[in-house]
Design a protein around this nucleic acid. Structure first.
Length: 573
DNA sequence: AAAAAAG
């Protein structure tokens, strides 16, 4: 059980100040006795009962965590996700600047609604997240919480369900990971219903994401937050060999990050049980609940063995949240708080949005012009990454070939490529080896790719929310970004919402686009996700939305929920 | 109609 591995903290040194910590990070004053009932720096001692043997079934907790061998080996082996050299570790550098420009945060509009909303905090120290997690927060160089974190963390710590609208890059992942990790540490191991077999993994938290790459990214980030907390994070997604993922699950899992398809597969194989779930988080929640995903999500959340709303805690996050989707989401929530954080940087100051009228047949040559101009003006040596969005997978392949043929190193990511190719393409793009990435909407949401200077909407999406997500891939890390859209007759349905969005973001709207917008009979008003200064608005506050939804809503809320407009802050009015 | 997500 004992080992000389430097990352292992022997039991007698646990709960000790930093001298016991092998990580090459200078830190001071790690307090002892932080209220975690024996957790401190390496809380594994608090999780398992001592003296169990390998493979022993039954007892106090989920099947795996009685197996002290597996557990301690896991602890000993836990790789330092921060790397030994901060300066040369790209992963760390990326996390260090998750698009957080604190100077831009002072006048960010924030709105909450719901009953008894826990008040926001101004510092991480105000919340008792635990010493191990606090140390990781310092390692991440998060000095103070972002707006979404200031509000979402106390709400989650307070045990409330949450529907949060906040731009990706505003610290969303941490906003739902911190409370989950902290809650798992505090709660210790529930003694309830052990699994039937040690081969069934029983995670306490489930984080679902709409793409494989996003689930990978969340997993990487969550591992940093959970480092040496004793909380194990495992990822499961399709397109990759299942055996490795199964082995990881067998070694124990507190937090499972997954895409829906692979999770359903694992549930059907009875390799995962959701009976112990205490936290459910949906990232890009509006996408997860839209037509393509809804049946799978309902299956996972409502038709397996997951505890119902009110028993588990549910956290929904997205940059956009259309009203129809909000209404759907109430099925998964109990007396929830709605939180909207104004767009930070992304579609306001930091991203310069341009729309150019380009005929379908001229798109390639026009893109070429842009790339030539960019190449001419750009600082040589500095990598300027360009992300080009197209509508179809075939279109992505053909544009990639054409760009390469014309001397622009490009690669592509879309759902017809193998997972290996997808991950290679993303790495190749991030590293600057192929500074142009042609992508379908698989790359539109959530991916944090530093140094993307230019997002080109070669084909505009049909949904303004998708546009918001796409351009959000640039203007990150406090840097400015450029978003260029090619517009023509085929996109006339987008004219109005696009013009309105750009106007709200104080962007210059070309006269011809306004003309298109005026002609267009399509709506674009109050599309829920895109309207106003916020990333969204609580549909419970919309009279027209409530007319149909109120009954269902009133019944669905266990604590009475939102009882009309009378007892709620009126900042909206 | 398209994209994503299981094999």
């Amino acid at each position: 059980m004992t080992t000389s591995r430097t990352s292992y903290v022997p039991p007698h040194l646990r709960n000790r100040p930093p001298s016991a910590d092998p990580a090459p990070i200078s830190h001071s004053g790690a307090a002892v006795g932080n209220g975690y009932l024996g957790y401190g720096g390496a809380p594994s001692a608090g999780f398992r009962s001592v003296g169990h043997r390998d493979g022993q079934i039954g007892g106090g907790g989920g099947a795996w965590n009685n197996r002290s061998n597996g557990w301690d080996r896991g602890m000993a082996r836990e790789a330092n996700p921060f790397g030994d050299d901060v300066d040369t570790d790209p992963g760390f550098g990326a996390l260090e600047n998750t698009g957080i420009n604190f100077d831009a945060y002072d006048d960010i509009p924030v709105e909450t609604s719901g009953i008894n909303v826990p008040p926001p905090v101004n510092t991480f120290a105000e919340i008792d997240l635990g010493e191990a997690l606090n140390l990781n927060i310092r390692r991440c160089k998060y000095t103070k919480p972002t707006p979404v974190q200031r509000y979402a963390i106390p709400i989650s710590i307070g045990g409330r369900d949450l529907m949060a609208c906040a731009q990706t890059g505003s610290g969303k992942t941490a906003a739902f990971c911190f409370p989950i990790i902290s809650g798992i540490m505090k709660g210790g191991q529930s003694a309830a219903s052990p699994a039937r077999s040690p081969r069934i993994a029983c995670p306490l938290a489930l984080i679902l994401a709409p793409t494989r790459e996003l689930s990978i990214q969340i997993h990487e980030e969550a591992k940093k937050f959970a480092y040496q907390t004793g909380v194990r994070v495992v990822v499961a997604y399709g397109g990759a060999p299942v055996n490795m993922q199964l082995r990881e699950l067998e070694r124990g899992v507190h937090i499972l990050v997954a895409t829906p398809g692979r999770l359903v597969d694992l549930l059907e194989r009875a390799r995962v049980s959701l009976q112990m779930i205490r936290y459910l988080a949906l990232d890009e929640a509006d996408r997860m609940l839209d037509m393509g995903f809804e049946p799978q999500i309902r299956r996972i959340v409502q038709q397996m063995d997951m505890p119902p709303p009110g028993i588990r805690q549910t956290l929904l996050f997205s940059a956009t949240f259309p009203k129809e989707i909000q209404r759907l989401a109430t099925d998964f929530l109990s007396s929830y708080v709605f939180l909207a954080v104004g767009r930070v940087g992304s579609s306001t100051d930091l991203i310069l949005q341009r729309v150019e009228y380009v005929h379908e047949t001229d798109k390639r040559s026009h893109l070429m012009d842009l790339l030539h101009a960019q190449r001419a003006s750009g600082d040589q040596g500095k990598q300027t990454l360009t992300l080009v969005f197209v509508e179809t997978k075939k279109g992505a392949d053909s544009l990639e070939h054409w760009l390469c043929f014309n001397g622009f190193p490009a690669t592509t990511i879309h759902g017809d490529r193998t997972q290996q190719e997808r991950e290679y393409a993303l790495r190749s793009f991030k590293s600057g080896k192929t500074p142009i990435l042609v992508a379908t909407d698989v790359a539109a949401r959530g991916l944090d790719i530093p140094h993307v200077a230019h997002v080109v909407n070669f084909d505009l999406p049909n949904d303004i929310d998708d546009y918001v997500h796409r351009i959000g891939r640039t203007g990150r890390a406090g840097k400015t970004g450029l978003a260029t859209a090619f517009f023509n007759e085929n996109n006339s349905s987008m004219a109005k919402p696009l013009a309105e969005l750009m106007q709200e973001a104080n962007q210059e709207v070309p006269a011809w686009l306004s003309h298109f917008a005026a002609q267009s009979s399509y709506g674009g008003r109050n599309r829920g996700g895109a309207g106003g200064r916020f990333g969204g608005r609580d549909f419970r506050r919309d009279p027209s939305a409530n007319r149909g939804g109120m009954d269902m809503y009133g019944v669905g809320q266990m604590n009475g929920g939102y009882g009309g407009a009378t007892n709620v802050a009126s900042a909206w009015d």
